[in-house]
Design a protein around this nucleic acid. Structure first.
Length: 335
DNA sequence: ACCGAGAAGCTATGAGCGAC
DNA sequence: GTCGCTCATAGCTTCTCGGT
């Protein structure tokens, strides 16, 4: 193992910035075959959180240092050794969706992860230089919180709620649980304020919930309920995102992920759906199935149908063909 | 297993109060 | 006055636990 060259590699030293608020979440670009455990994900988020995608030199790796005291807040030190060891072996697989042929690249995430080296007090991630271009695209290819939507919110709690919701949607989750304590921390409510749950709900959760649901562009409907004991000793709340639009977005995302992993299976399934639910001629079906753009459009609209987003449409086939611009135009008898 | 009464906890409402 | 908050209370629901 000739590692001498590696050691001479350049790393951009990322200064540690405490309390960074924007987190970018993997959106659609990355499909990792190796799944992250919860703790791994948490550590990875510490890493992602620190990255300022504007200042990345895409030729160099990035060195991100996180104070161990910070890590300790959410991860037990005993876990770190095992977890970082497995993280150091993680590979991310990038698929380029814009190409017609299958093209992918496995990229090891980190060239090294060190814990408290030379008693530094830091957990240091050194990312693989090849990862840098992807990290630099955090701003465009990752879930970014919609700044305009956030600006429109009147309650600061709405903003936080919105971020939480986005965060979970970004990870394909529509149900999530928080303890009351965690929520109070997330919403930055002072300890003495709203000591009873009722007031907390009345002044924090409810205004946020209502505001999200009444957002002009894409209302997000969130419901929550007490977990476990409904009446007594409520310690956790379970949130459910029920917005149709968001859900259809999620399904589209899942579809795209599935395509990158196993295209032929997805296409077979797609053909089955067309046959069973739509009255589309063979030739037209072949046209759709042979064109990635049409497939994409078709799936989008189909999922929207499934989620009841087009309640007024009576003839789904006609509607979908019109959207795909596949309606036969009368060539001979033009007006 | 079931019942019922009292205890315990929760919800909704709104009065009260200080800050602006 | 309005806003933001706390607190009290009435009226619930749910739990506990002893009795059958």
């Amino acid at each position: 193992m000739a590692h001498t060259e590696l050691e001479e590699e350049h790393y951009y030293e990322h200064p540690y910035t405490p309390n960074r608020k924007d987190n970018y979440l993997p959106n659609r670009m990355v499909i990792s075959n190796t799944q992250f455990s919860r703790v791994e994900q948490r550590l990875f988020e510490y890493f992602i959180n620190q990255i300022d995608h504007n200042s990345i030199n895409i030729k160099h790796g990035i060195s991100v240092k996180i104070p161990i005291t910070k890590i300790r807040e959410t991860v037990k030190v005993e876990q770190v050794l095992a977890v970082t060891r497995s993280m150091a072996q993680k590979v991310m697989t990038f698929f380029d969706m814009s190409k017609s042929h299958i093209e992918f690249k496995h990229v090891p995430l980190f060239s090294s992860i060190s814990f408290n080296e030379d008693n530094s007090g830091y957990l240091e991630f050194r990312s693989n230089a090849q990862l840098s271009p992807y990290l630099a695209s955090l701003g465009t290819q990752y879930t970014r919180y919609d700044f305009k939507t956030i600006l429109a919110f009147r309650s600061i709690y709405s903003t936080i709620m919105y971020k939480i919701v986005k965060l979970h949607l970004g990870q394909n989750r529509t149900k999530f649980i928080y303890s009351i304590d965690e929520l109070r921390r997330l919403f930055q409510v002072e300890e003495k304020k709203y000591t009873n749950l009722n007031d907390f709900k009345k002044y924090v959760l409810e205004p946020a919930r209502k505001e999200l649901a009444s957002t002009e562009k894409f209302p997000i409907v969130v419901e929550y309920e007490h977990l476990g004991n409904k009446q007594r000793n409520v310690t956790h709340l379970e949130f459910t995102i029920v917005t149709q639009w968001e859900l259809s977005q999620l399904e589209q995302q899942e579809y795209r992920d599935a395509v990158t992993l196993n295209p032929s299976l997805v296409y077979a399934k797609l053909e089955e759906i067309i046959d069973q639910q739509y009255l589309i001629k063979k030739e037209t079906k072949q046209i759709i199935l042979s064109n990635a753009t049409l497939i994409d459009k078709f799936v989008t609209i189909h999922i929207e149908f499934e989620n009841g987003l087009h309640p007024k449409v009576k003839n789904k086939t006609a509607y979908i063909l019109a959207c795909l611009d596949l309606v036969k135009k009368k060539t001979t008898r033009s007006k």
